[in-house]
Write a protein that binds this DNA or RNA. Sequence first.
DNA 1: AAAAAACTAGACGACTGGTCTAATATGAAT
DNA 2: ATTCATATTAGACCAGTCGTCTAGTTTTTT
Lengths: 210, 210
Amino acid sequence: MNVSSLMQTRTDSTRDHILATGRGLVAQRGFAGMGLNELLKTASVPKGSFYHYFSSKEDFGCNLLEQYMSQYMSRLDEILTTKGPDARTRLMQYWSLWTSSQTSGDACVQCLIVKIGAEISDVSDEMREILEDGTRQIGMRLSEAIAEGQADNSISQTVEPDLLGAALYEMWLGASLVAKLSRNRDPFLNAMATTELMLPKPHQHTKDMI
Amino acid sequence: MNVSSLMQTRTDSTRDHILATGRGLVAQRGFAGMGLNELLKTASVPKGSFYHYFSSKEDFGCNLLEQYMSQYMSRLDEILTTKGPDARTRLMQYWSLWTSSQTSGDACVQCLIVKIGAEISDVSDEMREILEDGTRQIGMRLSEAIAEGQADNSISQTVEPDLLGAALYEMWLGASLVAKLSRNRDPFLNAMATTELMLPKPHQHTKDMI
DNA sequence: AAAAAACTAGACGACTGGTCTAATATGAAT
DNA sequence: ATTCATATTAGACCAGTCGTCTAGTTTTTT
């Protein structure tokens, strides 16, 4: 065959439309819970088109997750690069945005790692690996931000960036799960307070300093 | 142990057998991913029996989760009451057992809150409320244990039990999710190290005490 | 205009959760 | 022991869903 698989058609809009519609539906019903008929009816796309763009439901799921993780990493990097004067402020801003996005009730911004991570982990190795890679990258980026905070003197040198980055990320994933169950933002407020304690600022004017 | 798992002659043995089989299947495939036919074929139980004992799949799910949470709370209470000389040791033993159970690969002991919490939270209010209640109870029991540790002088007075109990629980839920994705126990080791830091022993000979 | 690729359309069989009637086992009352 | 009511089992059946597939139409390229 030729390079037809690499060719880009002008009208990828159908494919993108299926992916966008699917994200909302998956965030609401889960992956197994979202039927293809429901997806395609919602998107007003015939079933034949779906199997033109994706080889299977799992392939669709992989593309959905890859797109999601890619966009998430870009956004994370933007926040941790620009949204604040120092690394600690930017980190706290990240948790703050996490809280507001996960309490908005808007299905499209729901964290897909929380929503379908456990569901697909024992079912689809291909999808699992995409999320595994995503969580690894996010954890690393957070650890990096903590190290930056130690460099710009907004975070105490007493913490270990690698350990703490992963631990904070895990705590916020858990908080999201509990928040989904309890339908309120208390778990996030709790995680926020704990995060403040776990990311201590350097001691500046205590008696033992100076 | 007992004969009920081998014989189905006793009255409720069929019902219990369906629940036990369902727990393993749900832990593997998720709730929507487990079909009734698969469940009943695995359990060698005709469909008529299922609808004699349960009014619907959701009703079955509720009973499954209620039984699970009830057994979990009993086990948690046993650990936090007997498995160690002081409250802090008993708490650490709880996380240690969490780690080994979630890394065993045995589907039957998988944490159902992690596995199907997010999945069902937007689909079944009835099931969601059961898990909501369960997470609340577990968090409270952990906070209680931390307070006990402060009372028996195994945990520093500087921490706030309510905040910390919930935060630790959330971190371990998140660690379980990440561990399911990465298929290794690193997230648990990480959570364990962080837990040690978050549950400080009392300072015994510092200058500010006396 | 012809050939090839991109895309649409919906039929298809296996399966889904759920309902239904009938058959059988059990236990209490007589 | 016989009867009768209840508890439980059995699985055919329903309308609908699942993901797959082949055939057909439109668009692009040559």
